[in-house]
């Protein structure tokens, strides 16, 4: 029996000694690990997009446990995730408005031509740093795709006409592209918002018209159609804080065709397909005609009424 028992005893003994050693070490080097941390890491999306501002999902989880981060700031996770996080941490969660990124420029090479030839590094930052960029409009999209490179979800398409377009269905609203754009053209907007002003040029009409044929001139005609359009200087923008729906004819009021309505077109089609703009122009003309007729009719009615009153008076 000895040849079997002895090795077993020796090995178990050795094992026990080591186990005892480790047990002691465990006490000495004890590190507190919050079990909520592991749970949080599990439910976070794991895309490590950095949209929350922390280094990766595990960084965010650590910040959540530490109490220095809000549960609502994970853009890809959205409201559902915020709720789950809330239940793990045992805190109340306020409502999250899902957001998507929007490239607020539609100035393709035809409407906003290049003012110079650019020879150099093919990134937007580099081109922007070089004498303010090669595009006539110094606020417009350079189309070199720094945002598309920054997007962890492949949600940004660089079109053939040198513009960046965010596909809203793919966008998680992490905001990496917002940080990547040297001209601050990309902004986060509520995903449910259908109408947008595709321009950020704050300059006056004369300067905008000199550089782009689809830029906002600050004419305020859109603001007459809906209270949701707010003017910041000479730039109209949709104000997300004002409640209400923008009427579908609002885009027709813009003489520059700067206002985009996703209820009628997909944003990629609007940017890439000239047919959309052609159709838009026809619809605009029709709306203007109808509007003119409506106004004329209203005027005639008013005049008629005045006449009637006058006649009554005579009688």
């Amino acid at each position: 029996m000895t040849p079997v028992i002895l090795p077993v005893i020796v090995l178990s003994g050795l094992g026990l000694v080591m186990a005892a050693l480790l047990a002691v070490a465990r006490k000495v080097f004890y590190v507190e690990v919050d079990e909520r941390l592991e749970k949080l890491v599990d439910i976070l999306p794991g895309a490590n997009c950095g949209g929350c501002g922390f280094p990766g999902c595990s960084g965010y989880a650590a910040a959540l446990v530490g109490g220095s981060a809000k549960p609502t700031i994970c853009p890809p996770g959205g409201a559902d995730l915020a709720e789950e996080i809330g239940s793990i941490l045992g805190v109340e969660v306020e409502e999250v408005v899902p957001q998507v990124a929007l490239v607020a420029c539609a100035g393709n090479p035809q409407s906003a031509p290049e003012r110079s030839t650019y020879i150099g590094i093919s990134t937007c930052e580099a081109a922007h740093l070089t004498a303010g960029g090669f595009k006539s409009c110094t606020f417009g999209c350079l189309g070199l795709g720094s945002c598309a490179v920054a997007c962890p979800f492949d949600a940004i398409v660089m079109t053939d006409n040198h513009l960046a377009v965010v596909i809203p269905e793919l966008c998680n609203g992490c905001g990496n592209c917002v940080a990547a754009c040297p001209r601050k053209i990309i902004k986060l907007v509520p995903a449910a918002e259908p109408v947008h002003v595709l321009c950020i040029n704050p300059q006056k009409a004369k300067l905008v018209k000199a550089v782009c044929s689809v830029g906002c001139t600050g004419c305020k005609l859109c603001a007459k159609q809906s209270k949701r359009f707010a003017m910041t200087g000479a730039l109209a923008q949709v104000d997300p804080t004002v409640p209400g729906e923008i009427p579908s004819h609002a885009p027709y009021a813009c003489p520059q065709g700067t206002i985009f309505d996703s209820r009628r077109y997909k944003v990629l089609d609007w940017i890439t397909m000239p047919a959309c703009r052609e159709e838009h122009e026809i619809l605009t003309a029709e709306w203007k005609k109808a509007e003119k007729e409506r106004k004329a009719a209203a005027k005639a009615k008013k005049a008629q009424k005045a006449k009637d009153v006058a006649r009554e008076g005579v009688r």
């Binding site: 090995l11 080591m18 480790l22 000495v28 080097f29 590190v31």
Partner: peptide, 26 residues
Amino acid sequence: LQYLQTIAFILVIAATVQLTEMAIQK
């Protein structure tokens, strides 16, 4: 019991590594 060399050594090494891991984590 020289024939137990490999298994005994692995046991020792595993314990040492565990110890190191705990120490580094701390």
